[in-house]
Design a binder for these strands. Structure first.
Lengths: 109, 109
DNA sequence: ATGTTATATGAACATTTGTTCAAATGAATG
DNA sequence: CATTCATTTGAACAAATGTTCATATAACAT
């Protein structure tokens, strides 16, 4: 378990993915395409954002492979890339939900 | 399933947590305290970062409750807050690992 | 009390980032 | 072909961010 430059690259890539998710607008977009593909204009309307901004952000989401795109005629449909994305979002929501509950044991924090 | 302002707050909080994780140095620190508590100076040495920077970053990690702190004498020990943090990191590493593998079936996507 | 060790905090600066606006590309249709 | 619709891309600017340096707090020792 010594630190290789492979690990460093991984950390950098990991940070990049989280940085992409660390923006409220991109997160909104991601949630909108979580369980079905949607065209860009549709996403923009649902999120209340300009088409240009949505396209820019979809570009970054796609660059991190958080979403995938498919063209159908003039429209481009975007959808969440894989199950990990959904899992991570769910886990993080649970994490946030955990407000200092006085509840159970109190072992080593 | 209409959008409430509660959801908006959640999205904002969620984005904040991801933003905190979206930095390579903070991620390194987080990994270092993933399975056992460590004092600040120890973390700084292991990560190759200044004490000041580590302290600043630990502050942000703690503000998002990604890590928790405990004082023992002069030292302060930090450790990953809960299981969700570990799970999210693992899932994301898997996500990244999924590079267009030519391997097995070749279904959709 | 003073001194020493460990950590935290504030201000300042350079760099990065999100957003907007305008223009460009691509796909269908007359 | 030109035109319309849907999306992408580039440049520019304001706002947010990471890092460093210096100083402050906290705990223990002499």
């Amino acid at each position: 378990m010594n630190s290789t430059s492979q690990d460093e690259t991984r950390i950098d890539d990991l940070a990049e993915v989280f940085r992409v998710m660390g923006d409220a607008n991109r997160l909104r977009i991601l949630v909108l395409v979580l369980d079905r593909p949607r065209p860009v204009a549709d996403i923009a309307a649902a999120a209340g954002l300009s088409q240009s901004l949505v396209s820019h952000n979809l570009g970054r989401l796609r660059a991190s492979r958080l979403v995938s795109a498919e063209r159908r005629g003039k429209q481009v449909f975007y959808v969440a890339a894989d199950q990990h994305v959904r899992t991570v979002l769910r886990d993080m929501l649970e994490h946030i939900g955990e407000v200092d509950r006085p509840g159970p044991p109190l072992g080593q924090a």
